[in-house]
Amino acid sequence: MKLLQKTKSDIMALVACLAVYAIIQTLILTDVIGPFWQLNIVLIGINIILVVSLNLINGFTGQFSIGHAGFMAIGAYVSAVLTVKFQLPFIAAIAGGALGAGALGFAIGLPTLRLNGDYLAIATLGLGEIIRITILNISYVGGASGFMGIPRYTDFTWMFAFTVFTVFVIKNFIDSTHGRACISVRENEIAAEAMGVDTTKYKVLAFTIGAAFAGVAGSLFSHYFYIAHPASFTFMKSFDILTMVVLGGLGSISGSITAAVLLTFVSAALASYPEWRMIIYSLMLIILMLYRPQGLFGNKELSLKMLSRWTGGKKHGSTQGN
């Protein structure tokens, strides 16, 4: 019975995705959505991939990583090399970008994930910067002036397909015994070990999967903007992603998606006031953290039950504390 319900909700989700795709695609084809908002819609998709994949590491597995932009950079550059220098098809280039970023995530994660908390955070930040500075010094990929002449393969359809794919795969992963193992690491590492969970393996696994999807996002990114530039992948970009994760709620996928949509829109809406943009953005961050430090959704998922609780008042009087 439960299985049937699950399948049913899966089908409903699929129908909803297709509907959203159809509506936006029609609006794009009929030019109702102009180039500026088209660009921002693609950015939303890329950000969703980045935020959901970082949430797997930070929110679900509880490992504090702030070097996500580094893995995005690997994806952007590896895929660009594959399409530009080796004339591979886009899908193969995305796979290559994901593989490259994932492999590096694995190689980096293995030694560094022994660290916890702030130490891991600062190590991942440092690694992200090392990746960027290394790219900056490789003339094969354009060095400091960036990798130019990348074909624009990414469009709304590609972006949408990969966003849905990412969310689908990561959500399924989390709802499985492997995902539960990751969450147990977050909740209590010592208890997780005592329950037979190989905590190191699951930390590295979450880190690798997260990095691989950041690679996907990077591939889509560089094949939309014609260029991959080291300046796009500084730790500020990592902070950006982290901000969205925390804003949406650590351990909430629907929260991540909401935050990615919301912040990308805010950022776009403020684009015409460049000098005020970052100030408003930063104030919003501070105020949100002061008043809702657990993020919009906490660690819960958006569900019909939650919606009815919001709209229907606090009838159930549930006392799910934090």
Binding site: A121, T243, I279
Partner: peptide
């Protein structure tokens, strides 16, 4: 949560810079 105060610190940093 510790991460909330860290995000706030990032916010303050951006605020001072911009």
């Amino acid at each position: 949560p510790k991460i909330a105060i860290l995000i706030t610190a990032i916010g303050v940093s951006l605020f001072l810079e911009y």
